[in-house]
């Protein structure tokens, strides 16, 4: 519950930064996705249920700053958070490549769902342009940023939720 409550101001701030600041940091037309990074980072450090909640909250904030139908990004991020929660408890969870693999899947699914939504509402989308100018560059930047994001998420969870020790 505490993690979800903390998520509200954090995700609101990230959505604002996504619109006002990160939209200028571009590789072709791709940008780092701050809210997606936060959701995936929170899930990878083990707060999977909260991460799903973060997906809903963060997606709703993003929808406020976008022309896409309200709720569509929230659905996409909930699905992404649900998907990336599956490695929890698996033996390869601690492997360094795992977060990169998770981010690769998460970023691809997130953008594919975004493209799908716009196609559904009739916005013209050139799939080749979307893939080469948006999806791939965004995914690349998300991959670069996921490891530091996990470090931050780890440090936050250890401060907020220190592991219980039996004496």
């Amino acid at each position: 519950m505490l993690g979800t409550l903390i998520g509200i101001p954090v995700l609101a701030l990230l959505a604002v930064l996504q619109s006002s600041l990160l939209s200028h940091i571009r590789l072709l037309d791709g940008r780092p996705d701050a809210v997606l990074l936060a959701v995936v980072g929170w899930s990878v450090v083990g707060r999977t249920n909260e991460a799903i909640g973060w997906g809903f909250i963060g997606g709703s904030f993003l929808d406020l700053f976008s022309g896409v139908p309200f709720g569509s990004t929230a659905i996409a991020l909930v699905l992404v958070a649900y998907l990336v929660s599956f490695p929890e408890g698996r033996f390869w969870e601690s492997h360094v490549v795992m977060p990169l693999g998770v981010m690769l899947v998460a970023s691809t699914v997130f953008h594919v769902l975004g493209i799908g939504t716009l196609v559904l509402v009739g916005h013209p989308i050139d799939l080749e342009v979307a893939l080469t100018r948006v999806l791939l560059p965004s995914t690349f930047m998300n991959l670069v940023l996921i490891l530091p994001t996990i470090q931050v998420a780890n440090s936050v969870t250890q401060r907020l939720f220190p592991p219980e020790v039996k004496i």
């Binding site: 799903i52 997906g55 139908p69 309200f70 709720g71 929230a74 659905i75 958070a81 929660s85």
Partner: peptide, 28 residues
Amino acid sequence: RTSSRTLIASALIILALSLLALSAAGYL
């Protein structure tokens, strides 16, 4: 834990779909 996650995700998707419908109708 898996079924709990599925339940949360399903509930939130239904909530998001409701918001989508309300927003499309202009109520939000």
